[in-house]
């Protein structure tokens, strides 16, 4: 994973609650065996008209003034539903580096952090302010300091956001969690010798 220390970019808003992972990437795109090229499937059923190819001119990501936006402002409870890690892969593929909401579904948040996509939790007032800013001025940018855990708004106000200390360490240092777990090999072996195996699938 690449290091993620600072993020800055223009914002785009989807003021819709409970955007589920079937909207972020519909299941028919899950037949892949790698992670590449999923950006074009992001929000596919909202982004394209019924033929699946013609961009829906009303969908916010298709509006030229929001092209290049890298910070998504979403309604409450973003990423609910399936465990598919294809959701953060698709969002990263579509150019997003962070998603801002009042809260995130647990599995999505875990998956996002493991891929360097930052889920930023803000209060409802900040969320509404960002919705308005994005609508009024599509060039609005925000910046994020991962170490300081702050989101800086265009008016200079810095909003703190929670971030699990371990996830932060991994983001700042570009560390993935598998390396950490592999280093615990002796502890895992000790656990295994102290606890009888519950089921044996190969039996």
């Amino acid at each position: 994973m690449e290091k993620v220390k600072r993020i800055s970019g223009s914002i785009v808003s989807m003021p819709v609650n409970d955007i589920d992972t079937d909207q972020i990437i519909p299941a028919r795109f899950l037949k892949v065996t790698d992670k590449q090229g999923l950006g074009k499937a992001a929000f596919c059923d909202w982004r394209y008209l019924e033929d699946g190819e013609t961009p829906n001119p009303e969908f916010v990501l298709n509006r030229p003034e929001y092209r290049g936006a890298s910070v998504l402002i979403a309604g409450n409870n973003f990423g609910c539903g399936s465990s598919r890690e294809h959701a953060p892969w698709a969002l990263l593929g579509a150019g997003f580096k962070a998603v801002i909401s009042t809260d995130f579904a647990d599995i999505f948040r875990n998956n996002a952090l493991k891929n360097g996509l930052l889920p930023i939790i803000v209060d409802a007032d900040t969320q509404q302010q960002l919705f308005s800013l994005a609508e009024e001025d599509p060039s609005t940018s925000v910046s994020v300091d991962v170490d300081a855990q702050t989101l800086t708004l265009p008016d200079g106000r810095a909003v703190s956001f929670p971030l699990d200390g371990f996830a932060k360490y991994c983001l700042l240092n570009g560390v993935d969690q598998l390396g950490y777990l592999l280093a615990l090999d002796d502890e895992v072996s000790a656990y295994e010798s102290g606890h009888p195996q519950r089921v044996m699938t190969t039996a």
């Binding site: 890690e85 998956n111 969690q177 777990l181």
Partner: peptide
């Protein structure tokens, strides 16, 4: 339920954070 990165963690280490 877990994500695919975590599937990799469990395959390799039988543990999860």
């Amino acid at each position: 339920g877990i994500g695919t990165s975590e599937v990799g963690h469990v395959l390799a280490t039988q543990t999860l954070l």
